[in-house]
Design a protein around this nucleic acid. Structure first.
Lengths: 238, 238
DNA sequence: CGAATAGTTGATGTATCTCAAGCAGGGTGG
DNA sequence: CCACCCTGCTTGAGATACATCAACTATTCG
């Protein structure tokens, strides 16, 4: 799933369990695919392009660690970041033979590069892929709501809440409401292009939230959230 | 794929070839699934809810004819239509056990209702599903660009161009540029909720396009496009 | 024919964008 | 070690695209 939390290469283990021990039983097959002689491991530093729009889509990437964004460009240069992916997420599965968007690392990342043929031959592989795709679609649906119907303030709140380690798309089920800290491993421009806003609006909204005590900036890219529920209430979702 | 063209229950055969004769060879298996004793055929009239957000997702729907929209609601009533689907498209494949959005018919439609177990057991089934999911994702990516980065005018132009029978997400490859006619089998409210606009803005933009001769209204829901390329140039995509 | 519903148009408001200047932090070289 | 520069971020003033509110018009259906 395109969990945004933990997508940023935070120290510590990813939320989701290692693939081999997932309960569905399908992962044994997936592990075999990962072990295929054609499967490679690749490391890339931050802000490197994994593939470009139009490149042939003959392989598929699983993120081991780090984070990747997928974006599309309009001819006049406008950009929309369409997905942000983290450990365990799959990308490179395009509809046709060519990629429909650019994939770029946000931070230094590691991938397992899987040959498309390997992935598509086994039921287990197909099932694992289908599962990832469904998660991706749910995230894209949620993001369409954000882009189509939420205010700038709601967008930023939604974004920050999703970056909190340990919470995905789900509702505010946090019982403790303990202060959380998030690392925004994205530039303001990237955040703006993800949220369908301008850099200035993102900056203004964050400044405003700081003034209201909803956020405390520990560093430029590091925010403390004293009251997660308060921020959660600003997302428009509850 | 979430082709918008032909999604509206137009008379005539859908663009895509009948499932059995697709060249990939996977469809024999899919046909078997469709022939499963558990598979049912269902008909619904327009504006009926197929399933609601939160309903258990234990089956999967293939559209035989007609059109369906998927939408999500915010607690305060704001709505975002996240997908519009037509013949051949699959829906009901949610990430978890519950549906993440509402599915409602736009026009009278027919479905094949497939048991989730049937669909997920065969490689062919999985592959067919994965293919549909990838197409869906490509459409969602394109739609994120529309919602995040396009002006009202570009959104409406993009929408109308996609409704033209025979053209999907692809570029303007039309050599003839023959006048096309589209049927908008959606209310202004539905269009607005799909494009992330208000009903008034959609109405104003269409009126403006009519005044400029880009559109001719043959009926409320029926538009003639004298110069498709001219409209295409307004989409922001080329 | 008339009510009900869906769509259009106008006047006004406002959230967000645009343009422009100033500021901070992090790295480099003197 | 500190001044300097570069890049990314913030803040302000003004413009604008779209939303909102409200009236009016067309269409549909009994």
């Amino acid at each position: 799933m395109a969990y945004l939390n933990h997508a940023m290469g935070e120290a510590g283990a990813p939320v989701r369990a290692p693939i081999a021990v997932r309960p569905t039983g399908e992962q044994i097959g997936w592990d075999e695919i990962l072990a295929s002689p054609r499967t490679r491991t690749v490391r890339m530093s931050e802000h490197e392009i994994v593939y470009d729009e139009g490149d042939v889509a003959d392989r598929l990437y699983e993120i081991s660690d780090g984070a990747v964004m997928l974006y599309k460009l309009l001819p006049d240069g406008r950009r929309q970041v369409v997905e942000i992916l983290g450990p365990g997420d799959l990308f490179g599965l395009s509809a046709g033979d060519a990629h429909d968007c650019v994939a770029e690392t946000l931070v230094a990342s590691g991938f397992r590069v899987i040959d498309r043929r390997d992935a598509e031959t086994s039921v287990a592989g197909q099932r694992h892929i289908a599962r990832c795709l469904r998660d991706q679609i749910a995230t894209l649906h949620e993001h369409a709501v954000l882009l189509g119907r939420k205010s700038a303030c709601e967008r930023v709140a939604t974004f920050i809440v999703r970056m909190v380690p340990g919470r995905g798309l789900g509702r505010c089920i946090d019982r403790t409401n303990a202060p959380a800290t998030v690392r925004l491993a994205m530039t303001r421009q990237e955040i703006a292009d993800y949220l369908g806003l301008t850099i200035e609006t993102v900056s203004r909204v964050i400044s405003d939230m700081r003034r209201r005590g909803l956020l405390v900036a520990e560093r430029q890219d590091r925010l403390r959230i004293p009251d997660l529920c308060a921020l959660c209430r600003m997302t428009g979702a509850h």
